[in-house]
Amino acid sequence: MNTKIITTTLTALVLTLSVSTAALAADITLLNVSYDPTRELYSDFNKSFAAYWKGKTGDTVTVKQSHGGSGKQARSVIDGLEADVVTLALAFDIDAIAEKGLIKPGWQKELPHNSSPYTSTIVFLVRKGNPRKIKNWDDLIKPGVAVITPNPKTSGGARWNYLAAWAFALHQPGGNEAKAKEFVSKLLKNVPVLDSGARGSTNTFVQRGIGDVLLAWENEAYLAINELGPDKFDVVTPSESILAEPPVTVIDKVADKHGTRKVAEAYLNYLYSDEGQKIAARHYYRPINSKIPTKLAKVKLYKIDDKAFGGWQKAQKTHFADGGTFDQIYAAGK
């Protein structure tokens, strides 16, 4: 249904564009400011989009990439990094950009599925053969299990990790806020290193050999296995986790200034196309189009908009702002 609408709008868009600019093929540059784990996805996707766009309009589009921690990237855009589009780890970071007036309010309704063309979740990466027998979240709080996760203050992925653990504890029989906090604080006691970003954590786990289990984006976990050898690690998918929706949007102010709105919108829409969805699936993201096959295991997924969290603005304030539950746990630990 959605795809249909998109394809129609796309075709319409492309038609108008090709009519208006067919005569002069242009060189267009887009800047996509993204978070850390999407490097491989977008290097693939950009090529595919460039070919598609060339075929439709004759224009050559080069998409430049910038990657880093989601919060840092959002801040760079706020401070003037001229991104035509952003594809970040969480809506909260894009909200922060919108707050400064660079994006029109209500941006998350512009594109289908909360403007998240693919989703992901949090899984465990363990050492080959799973020597610690880690199956689910409650195995992570056992004494002696070393868990690697980045710092939620600086890493978007880490916030999803934290909330996934929280959601798990909350939904256990007899679960409540206090128990969830206790669960998460036990989990954090098992964390020996808090890197500042998701990639830093993966390097600590993989390259430095520290920890029994890495909490990671699903796509990061599979990528690590692909890049570093399936003989070294296994992915363990817990019974339940959180639905991570990394949203995308056009930065209105910048795109209008650059005159790149059309191609920027087409770029994001292409993420929703069959081809875009296939590329996302190939990089172990969960495509939102159910027709696109994926090898990823079915998991019960909680949402950030569920009552337990009440959306990103609230979750951020409760858990990660100064004095939030994360700080409380560390302050109490002292």
Binding site: L31, V33, K64, Q65, S66, H67, G68, S76, L81
Partner: peptide, 13 residues
């Protein structure tokens, strides 16, 4: 450190 803060990290640029 200093360059990392002002760079914007655009690949190839």
């Amino acid at each position: 450190g200093a360059v990392s803060v002002v760079s914007g990290h655009i690949r190839g640029m």
